[in-house]
Design a protein around this nucleic acid. Structure first.
Length: 574
RNA sequence: GCGCCCGUGGCUCAGCUGGAUAGAGUGUCUGACUACGAAUCAGAAGGUCGCAGGUUCGAAUCCUGCCGGGCGCGCCA
């Protein structure tokens, strides 16, 4: 258990005991114990209000039929603070009980972090439960564009975060390599192939108009010439499609790897078709009465599970819809034993959630364990002006281009720094700028500065030179360092920020809000910069120097850990 | 028309399982480098939290209605 939780438990226990004694001695009515199971501690906004506060007296006022302040005062008077980190308790405002801690509780933080290293903040709330995060899953019919970038980062950071919280996470990419759109893809490829051979053929209106296919087919022609001209159209398209899918997928994988986005499993839709999984799923749904025939098509009774209308799964022409494949896919996922199946989808797919959940329920799984996280759209800007994009003509800004322009670190940070619920303005010029306006560098600069201080300290003989990946605890005996010398405001603020990292991970994981980690990293960097400007680390006072160096190194560890979750590099120099 | 997301200082956004005087970055203004990296720091100004009701001891936060922006509403994926 981390220090922060120990302290919280201490305070909760103090309140609990005060409650019991006050009731036992008749100072408070027994009804008040009804609320004692839910003693909530919160961090007051105002620093003068202490380190922690509880609103217990206020929420108990009704049951106890007493004024909140009165309850608070009685409770406070029954509190026993001996052997605790709580230095002072006060009643304030409408009935808050504020707890002021003795700053010495922070003395152990440095040791805690140094011992845990990169494992600091590793939690067990996931209890090793297997969960899956499926994200990106872009059609392998074209390059990844900016919109995919956000999903890629949100998904990968969420997966990292859940791992940090103690879940067993699988990262999966669903390859839509079957069905109608692949048929269309084949037609477009065929047209481009003919064009490459000089024929006057146009790409179908609803086909794929990207330049990339033109280039790809030119390549095919260069290699095999008009060899496919005489084949049956179906065979020709199959050959071209197979070739193109393989290439496009390889491109996608390469772009993602470049973007530090990795998958444990690439799951192919066509596999479901080959295995007959779709038919099996439909049959199962028919057997349990979730599917009916109307007008020659098969419909899923999704309204029974909260959807607006029933949905077609098998068309009149006998071809399954996308939903049918997705039902089979999700059945497959749940059968693999995940307790949570998490999907990251773009905002344009939100209308699909209720039917998907209905389908999952119809298949006998808990729809609550299917969690769909919607990521809102990205508006790409340059110097504050929207970048013109047209999906129709295939003129989209690709993810690879964005990375090329602003770099992986900045791109990742910009995609993750806002809540996924909010639409995102991604300003290329800002992300690319190596100036004070750019928050990525603010964080990285803190890390580089830390590395620089440690180098300097080693040069001056205060400690051995640290290798990359080494921390202070690896090269000196920390027991000889007196961290209680760290007492000024900026030092305490920094220590406190460090102590909150596990809590930060917990909240971000439970709410599945990875952007909180980006915020945290920024705040930690800020606390460090303030400290740096307020306190000279290396001085003539060697005891203080060592204490501050251990603090500096500890900040470095936490900063690296947070950046690691974000998939952003922590440079030693900039 | 229905559904989902958003509406918070000039700009971009946090805060949203209700809590005490609404925060950050940027921009503007004022200061800090003859010692560890000024890609930094300290300070100031700047807000009817879209509007109107409601719930409550207490609402940016929950509920209802309206207004504004985005996205979706296929036997497409």
């Amino acid at each position: 258990m981390y220090l922060l939780d120990q302290v919280k438990n201490q305070i909760t226990a103090i309140i609990q005991r005060a409650l019991e004694r006050a009731v036992a001695q008749g100072a408070l009515p027994a009804e008040i114990l009804d609320n004692s199971g839910m003693i909530a501690l919160e961090v007051p906004r105002e620093e003068t209000h202490g380190d922690w506060a509880t609103n217990l007296a206020m929420i108990s006022a009704r049951a106890a039929r007493m004024a909140p302040r009165k309850i608070a005062e009685i409770l406070a008077s029954y509190m026993d603070l001996t052997n605790s980190s709580v230095e002072k308790v006060e009643v304030a405002g409408p009935g808050f009980i504020n707890f002021h801690l003795n700053p010495t509780w922070l003395n152990q933080v440095i040791g805690e972090v140094q011992t845990a290293g990169s494992q600091y903040g590793q939690l067990e709330i996931g209890e090793g439960e297997a969960v899956q995060v499926e994200f990106v899953s872009a059609n392998p019919t074209g390059p990844l564009h900016v919109g995919h970038g956000r999903g890629a980062v949100v998904g990968s950071v969420l997966a990292n975060l859940l791992g940090k919280a103690g879940y067993q996470v699988q990262r999966e990419y669903y390859i839509n390599d079957a069905g109608n759109q692949i048929y269309n893809f084949g037609l477009s490829l065929e047209a481009r192939y003919f064009q490459a051979l000089g024929q006057d053929v146009s790409v179908p209106e609803d086909g794929y108009h990207g330049e990339d296919l033109k280039i790809l087919m030119a390549e095919v022609v260069a290699e095999v010439g008009d060899k496919y001209l005489d084949l049956e159209p179906e065979e020709r398209r199959t050959i071209l499609t197979k070739f193109a899918l393989k290439r496009k997928l390889a491109d996608i994988e390469r772009d993602l790897r470049e973007f530090r986005v990795y998958f444990d499993n690439w799951f192919s839709e066509s596999q479901l078709h080959q295995e007959g999984a779709i038919e099996d799923t439909v049959r199962e749904l028919q057997a349990n009465g979730s599917i009916y025939d109307d007008g020659g098509a098969l419909w899923l009774r999704s309204t029974q599970y909260g959807d607006d209308k029933d949905r077609v799964v098998i068309r009149e022409n006998g071809i399954p819809t996308y939903l049918a494949a997705d039902l089979a896919y999700h059945k497959n996922k749940f059968e693999r034993g995940f307790s949570k199946v998490i999907n990251i989808w773009g905002a344009d797919h939100h209308g699909y959630i209720s039917r998907m959940k209905a389908g999952v329920a119809a298949l006998g799984f808990d729809p609550e364990s299917l969690i769909v996280k919607i990521v809102q759209l990205v508006t790409l800007l340059r110097d504050g002006e929207p970048v013109a994009m047209s999906k129709r003509t295939g003129k989209l800004v690709t993810l690879a281009e964005v990375i090329e322009e602003v770099g992986v670190d900045a791109a990742r940070y910009f995609f993750i720094m806002r809540s996924a619920d909010s639409q995102l303005d991604f300003d290329l010029s800002l992300a690319a700028a190596h100036t004070e306006e750019n928050p990525v560098f603010y964080i990285q600069y803190a890390h580089a500065r830390i590395a620089s201080i440690l180098r300097q300290a080693a040069d001056l003989g205060h400690l051995p030179q640290l290798a990359v990946g080494q921390s202070l605890g690896d090269v000196i005996n920390l027991a000889t360092v007196d961290v209680s010398l760290l007492t000024n405001d900026s030092e305490l603020a920094l220590l406190k920020k460090i102590a909150f990292w596990p809590e930060e991970v917990k909240v971000a994981a439970l709410t599945m809000e990875p952007h909180r980690i980006a915020r945290y990293a920024h705040e930690l960097a800020g606390a460090f910069h303030s400290f740096y400007n307020a306190s000279r680390v290396i001085s003539a006072d060697s005891a203080l120097t060592m204490a501050r160096l251990s603090l500096v190194d500890t900040v470095g560890i936490v900063l690296r850990t947070a950046l690691d979750v974000l998939g952003i590099s922590a440079p030693e120099r900039m």
